[in-house]
Design a protein around this nucleic acid. Sequence first.
DNA 1: TGCTTTAATGTAACCGGTTACACAGCCCCT
DNA 2: AGGGGCTGTGTAACCGGTTACATTAAAGCA
Lengths: 344, 344
Amino acid sequence: MTRRSSSVTIRDVARHAAVSVATVSRYLNQNAPVSQEVSERIQQVMLDLSYKPLAVARNLATRRTQTIGLVLHNMHTDFFAPLLRGIEAVVSEYQYNLLVATYKHTSRPENLSPLGPQNTDGILVYADSFNEEQLIDLCRVKFPVVLIHRTSPAHLKIPFVTVENRTATRKIITHLIETHGRRSIAFLRGPFEQEDSRLREQGYRDALDAHGLIVKPALIIDGEFDQFVAYRNVKKLLSGEGQRFDAVFTGDDEAAIGALRAIQEAGLRVPEDVAVVGFDDSRLSPFLNPPLTTVCAPTEDVGRTAARLLFNLLQEQPAEMATLLPTDIIIRRSCGCPASAAMN
Amino acid sequence: MTRRSSSVTIRDVARHAAVSVATVSRYLNQNAPVSQEVSERIQQVMLDLSYKPLAVARNLATRRTQTIGLVLHNMHTDFFAPLLRGIEAVVSEYQYNLLVATYKHTSRPENLSPLGPQNTDGILVYADSFNEEQLIDLCRVKFPVVLIHRTSPAHLKIPFVTVENRTATRKIITHLIETHGRRSIAFLRGPFEQEDSRLREQGYRDALDAHGLIVKPALIIDGEFDQFVAYRNVKKLLSGEGQRFDAVFTGDDEAAIGALRAIQEAGLRVPEDVAVVGFDDSRLSPFLNPPLTTVCAPTEDVGRTAARLLFNLLQEQPAEMATLLPTDIIIRRSCGCPASAAMN
DNA sequence: TGCTTTAATGTAACCGGTTACACAGCCCCT
DNA sequence: AGGGGCTGTGTAACCGGTTACATTAAAGCA
């Protein structure tokens, strides 16, 4: 591709200012004294030549990229927007750069991840975008990593930040049982590879167990955190006879969209006939019809916290190993509570 | 910050494989013949040492970063999610990296933009995040730039991709006038610095003029493409007497949220008393109450197209100067059309 | 006054790749 | 048989910064 016309280098500046390159470099980095007079001369020359230090050369010399990376397995959902927002805020506060890549560890041949020690000072890894093997490799070279929405493999000590999944799910299911008397609660599972999915399922089982309700396998179906998958599968569940349910936990808010539609198209009322609750408190959830009762996950805060943690690592400051951000249940209408309870 | 423990270099590989660094480099880049035997030896050594070429060194040598940048003025709205998605798809197709930064040209002292020739091969500039002066600087050094949601300053020939703003707005306003007989249509202006805002306002004026309606300045208020600003200002407009209106174009869908709320809180019905229409067809719009009639802007496609264009520039292929992606009006309920018309 | 510090600067090696140039050996062609 | 072309390889310069080390002059101190 394009070869950039060679631009002005630090040597040009040095020559014009009649000083050595070292002095120019010192002026640039303010890391050694430079006389007032020389400083001014250099500054002037830099302006005249409109000199811009080449980041890549500096990076090579210092062995630092001033860049952190974020690996996501995709950008399909709106979930990553607040996440990215939180991360970006911290990154720019530190005057760093942010490299964003989507990547899924699945393609076996040459697991050449787009982000790593080659091009960043540290990375944020979302959920299962990297597999354990890749994490091990990074640990071996002591590369700073912070995991997002997944815990660290036991033997690797990688800091992670995620949200309270299990107890939050237990609480919201408990709400369906205790407050609304629901006893046949369907569960839409998220992608199995994502820890969030598995923990939410545990929370669901916890709640049922605690109330002496038996877990009916037929009521546990795939939602995949996906509107369309959820729609299809809830529809299928509704059409099969004998699979009556009076509530559904949709796994996340994305899937709730599909679930709501399937239920309403079947002529059932939400929440009267079937209560629906989600997880995430996505941007959409208050606007669904009826407004969705859900678990509020502080996604932007997750992003901020993870980024902060990574910067701690970069500065070799202590970093919390495990951060579990609290989640709240947000009562709206879809669980059966009166509309009065908060219109967020 | 952390100094990475010096890792395996190409010279180590060369030594272990008993060849020169040039040969290793050739093997890596497949840009010159290397004998079968030597290739295998090198490959083995690379595996043994788990050698990873340092991107930054390669970048310095080749004067290419394999990275493009995206400058946004902020990430507050959900708008940038589909945009980013489109861009990322193309970037990863080209095996490039994507650097994302938020930046606003306003802070005068040292307008050191985070993205530029120092660290990328080309950049995508959203709306007014860069000012004209900065664009001029980039043009001077022939740096590849593609503008998003703004046209090129006349004298600079920078390719840009944006959406049809003016005629789309004219059409949707015309719909309010002709189909629904609205004659007092309020207009929520977006941020003045954004071209989109200004063009939409022109479209609004076009439509009114074409129907012999006079533009009442009192009905043109600030919405700032912001839910809360829109809420406040619509509320204010409703409380002032004499400022009756029977429809409002909210500038974008974000502002529509606030407008709807303000109108409904004032006890007016949408669309019966006041019709509301937006712009963007954001993820939320079909879920608003009532579902929002709006202009569908192909944001993800804007991202893809802009990225493609930038890669054309990088490869010195011809690139379309002006790309104006078509917008459609999406009829839902909030304009007054019957609910039947598409539940998207 | 003589010695130690400190400020200010220069020289040149270094970061880890790429690549221009040189060259050896082999094949093919006239 | 000799020369042109191709294959495969090595040497070393180069990309544009940083920085260890050396050096000089001025300032501080006993």
